[in-house]
Amino acid sequence: MANKWLDEIINIRDVEGAFLISNRGKLIEKTQLPYDDKAIYDLGIRILRVIGSFHLKALNVTELELYWDKYYIICKNSADFTLITLCKSSKILSLLRITLNITIANLLEDKKFIKLLRSQVADKAFSLKKGDFEEFEKKMISKLK
């Protein structure tokens, strides 16, 4: 269903894969990825916790990008879901960002996808309220509230 939109992303050279998660942290859709589902879930939750922490301070995150030397995680956040893309080259980042914007627009017009998402609706700070937290996270989250 949403996979046809994600395929547009992985057609770009040096993109390793992409996945969609709801604000509740549920994996909605994914392309082929070099990581197992547990790692993808953990990665998604880390991303959601960043977005949630900004949300608690009334800052609406629309993009989140992590840069390593030769590896990039590019995330686009919409109201109820986040699209996360993994890629290995900085040269394609501009094209990738444009493609992600188009993908988000297509997803928001996909009635089946929106219907599926309805069962997953939660506020953006959901990931800071439920789940397993390490001591440092607990400490920071308590200070954010």
């Binding site: 960043v50 990008e65 390593w68």
Partner: peptide
Amino acid sequence: YEANKTGNLISNGNPQFISIAA
């Protein structure tokens, strides 16, 4: 903290830059 943990998950260590558009 979360970005560093993400780096560990994908065996890349700590990220050099984190950009958040809000």
